[in-house]
């Protein structure tokens, strides 16, 4: 029975090209980074060094500084983008007339390359010439944003928030729209005010989407390197030298593959934990059935 056998093999034929690419280009390099993490590059030859790369990492101030900066960046970025994204999603959920036009405009920054966004934001904050540098500096005690640690981090947070706001809003809006309108209307009829309807009906029902958006943005924050490369390159000094940037520089600029790979293993672990949370949340919603 040709057709019977065909029926059995066909699904695997269909997924084979995708699987092959994912295995070769995503999984294999990730596993290879574990191998590299236990070696060092000496004149182009890999040399086994055991756990020394990790010992160096744990004992280096630069690593802890990077980890702290990544956390600070992540907390501000995720917090702000969730807050504004949520407020915006509530507004768009009201189906205002012309809402589509607003949404399209708000989405434009997400469609720009990180380096294009970086050029724009650096230009606005360039010492002496930047329009926002000159406008905001007097309000904040005459600071030169890109030359101050917290100022430079603030610019990157602002730029990343600007780029990601619409995306976060869209995910949260999708969650809001899964809440049936009848439920909140019923709540209103029963005498609840809007505040109560939101906290007792809308919020619990969209909690899973909120969690997914939160994890998604956290992963984005941990791995954000493009905006840092294009705006601060880690400066001034090491004030914005986040984990991903340090990893990039060690491996690509200094050919320190072992050390860079060890750093990427550390990041892999952080990501894997977040991915696990993400997937279990999706699974609880039966997304894989």
């Amino acid at each position: 029975m040709l057709s019977h056998r065909l029926y059995k093999i066909f699904p695997y034929v269909l997924i084979a090209p995708a699987m092959l690419l994912v295995l070769l280009v995503s999984l294999y390099p990730t596993l290879y980074s574990f191998y590299l993490a236990f070696h060092r590059n000496r004149r182009g030859v890999l040399e086994y060094v055991g756990t020394r790369n990790f010992e160096v990492i744990v004992n280096s101030d630069a690593f802890w500084n990077s980890l702290r900066l990544t956390a600070v960046f992540g907390i501000f970025f995720v917090g702000l983008v969730m807050l504004f994204g949520f407020l915006l999603a509530l507004v768009f959920n009201r189906n205002l007339q012309g809402g589509g036009i607003y949404m399209t405009i708000i989405f434009i920054p997400w469609m720009l390359s990180e380096i294009v966004a970086g050029v724009m934001w650096r230009w606005m904050f360039l010492p002496q010439l930047g329009v926002l540098q000159n406008a905001l500096s007097p309000l904040l005690g005459d600071i030169t944003f890109l030359a101050t640690g917290s100022g430079a981090l603030g610019v990157v947070i602002g730029a990343t928030l600007w780029r990601s706001l619409a995306f976060a809003m869209l995910l949260l809006l999708a969650g809001l729209q899964t809440v049936p309108k009848e439920l909140s209307e019923a709540g209103m009829i029963d005498g609840a005010n809007r505040w109560q309807v939101f906290w007792r009906i809308t919020w619990p029902l969209m909690l899973p989407t909120t969690q997914i958006t939160f994890v998604f943005l956290t992963i984005q924050a941990v791995n954000a390197v493009g905006m840092f490369l294009s705006i601060t390159q880690g400066g001034p000094g090491t004030a914005t030298d986040v984990l991903s940037l340090q990893m990039y520089r060690e491996a690509i600029e200094f050919f320190n593959f072992g050390y860079g790979a060890a750093l990427s293993v550390v990041m892999f672990v952080i990501n894997a934990v977040l991915a696990f949370v993400y997937i279990s949340t999706l699974r609880a919603q039966h997304a894989f059935d």
């Binding site: 059995k8 699904p11 695997y12 997924i15 995708a18 699987m19 994912v22 280009v25 995503s26 999984l27 294999y28 390099p29 990730t30 290879y32 980074s33 590299l36 992963i219 984005q220 791995n223 390197v225 991903s244 990893m247 990039y248 491996a251 690509i252 593959f257 860079g260 790979a261 990427s264 990041m267 892999f268 990501n271 894997a272 977040l274 991915a275 993400y278 997937i279 999706l282 699974r283 894989f288 059935d289």
Partner: peptide, 29 residues
Amino acid sequence: FVGRSSLLIFILAMMMLPGITSLIPLFKI
């Protein structure tokens, strides 16, 4: 087919491990 749901999860997990952690080995390879 056998393994449908686990393969789907595997692919999604790959999406959650963004390019950056595989970029250094990719550069080397």
